[in-house]
Simulated scan of single mutants.
Amino acid sequence: MFFQHSSDIWRDFPELVPAALYAEGITPDADAGARIAAHAERAAARLAGASESDLPEIQAWRRTFARMGLKPTQYRCASEALLRRFRKEGALPRLHPLIDLCNAVSIAYAVPIAVFDVSRITSHVEVRYAAGDETYMTFGGATEQPPAGEVIFADAAGRAHARRWTNRQSGHSAVRDSTANVLIVAEALHDTAAADVEALVATLADELNTLWPVTPKSAILTPAAPRFEFPA
């Protein structure tokens, strides 16, 4: 299996810095509470001096959403939505230790992180423009059809695993208690994205190894090396 961005995405968003991580052996019984709290403290410190919309990581995604024809205050990237909820409520809901950990790392770095159950993916995941015939399943179980030109995470079966790029994932490949093998994707477009994404991946790999433990495989992708391969 593999993960990649299409050549059109690299062409239109040359500032993109994506990373992918694959891990096996995830279980729902890990105690991630202390690590989540540490990352939440970092997020709170950043929000003490600015709102989430002022952060350079979020501003870059807002500009990208505007370029895609989306109103940034109507459709937010995942990290902005999480930071907004965290600022208002002081905490994020607990769903699964891996999701909770990735959400905490996401708000600490203000970078969107997507997590997919590999067993629910067909062949590959590619971030590309929709053809208009793909299907997307919401967390409520409803089926939607992204319009042609929308940036989606698509597999070989024509299933969209995320809509509007980093706005919303699909319920079809969401992590659940039975999930064992996962693909994790982080994407940034701000000026210091290269260094920040590298630090994020190192942090996340260390956390995964500590909590489960697993030995994750990871890579930072570039136009010259756009594909991340992992076991089926």
Score class of each variant (00 low, 15 high):
residue 83 L to P: 02
residue 72 P to C: 00
residue 97 P to N: 03
residue 171 G to R: 00
residue 228 F to A: 03
residue 54 D to Y: 06
residue 199 A to Y: 07
residue 214 V to E: 06
residue 121 I to C: 06
residue 105 V to R: 00
residue 186 A to G: 04
residue 19 A to W: 01
residue 199 A to D: 12
residue 84 R to P: 00
residue 8 D to P: 05
residue 5 H to N: 14
residue 79 S to V: 02
residue 220 I to P: 05
residue 87 R to M: 12
residue 112 P to M: 00
residue 176 R to P: 08
residue 137 M to V: 15
residue 57 E to T: 05
residue 142 A to I: 10
residue 68 M to Q: 11
residue 205 A to H: 07
residue 227 R to G: 06
residue 57 E to A: 10
residue 122 T to E: 15
residue 194 A to E: 12
residue 80 E to I: 07
residue 23 A to K: 02
residue 169 Q to V: 15
residue 117 D to S: 01
residue 41 E to T: 08
residue 35 R to P: 07
residue 124 H to A: 10
residue 69 G to N: 03
residue 183 L to I: 00
residue 146 P to L: 06
residue 214 V to D: 04
residue 71 K to G: 14
residue 204 L to A: 03
residue 205 A to W: 07
residue 65 F to E: 08
residue 87 R to K: 14
residue 157 A to E: 09
residue 78 A to V: 10
residue 186 A to E: 00
residue 157 A to V: 06
residue 137 M to Q: 15
residue 151 V to T: 08
residue 190 H to S: 06
residue 181 N to D: 15
residue 112 P to F: 01
residue 163 R to M: 05
residue 194 A to I: 08
residue 7 S to K: 15
residue 179 T to C: 10
residue 75 Y to Q: 10
residue 124 H to E: 12
residue 77 C to Y: 01
residue 31 D to H: 04
residue 85 R to L: 12
residue 155 D to T: 03
residue 140 G to I: 08
residue 211 L to A: 04
residue 73 T to N: 14
residue 39 H to Q: 01
residue 196 D to I: 03
residue 162 A to W: 00
residue 95 L to P: 11
residue 164 R to W: 12
residue 110 A to C: 06
residue 152 I to P: 05
residue 173 S to G: 12
residue 21 L to Y: 05
residue 142 A to V: 11
residue 78 A to H: 15
residue 180 A to D: 11
residue 124 H to Q: 10
residue 75 Y to R: 09
residue 175 V to M: 07
residue 134 E to V: 05
residue 102 C to H: 06
residue 214 V to I: 07
residue 77 C to N: 08
residue 213 P to A: 05
residue 217 K to F: 15
residue 153 F to V: 05
residue 221 L to D: 09
residue 124 H to M: 09
residue 209 N to T: 15
residue 148 A to L: 09
residue 17 V to L: 06
residue 59 Q to I: 06
residue 70 L to W: 12
residue 225 A to K: 12
residue 75 Y to A: 10
residue 148 A to F: 09
residue 194 A to P: 06
residue 112 P to I: 03
residue 176 R to K: 14
residue 57 E to P: 02
residue 35 R to S: 13
residue 30 A to F: 03
residue 88 K to T: 14
residue 216 P to Q: 04
residue 52 E to C: 11
residue 6 S to P: 02
residue 53 S to W: 08
residue 154 A to C: 13
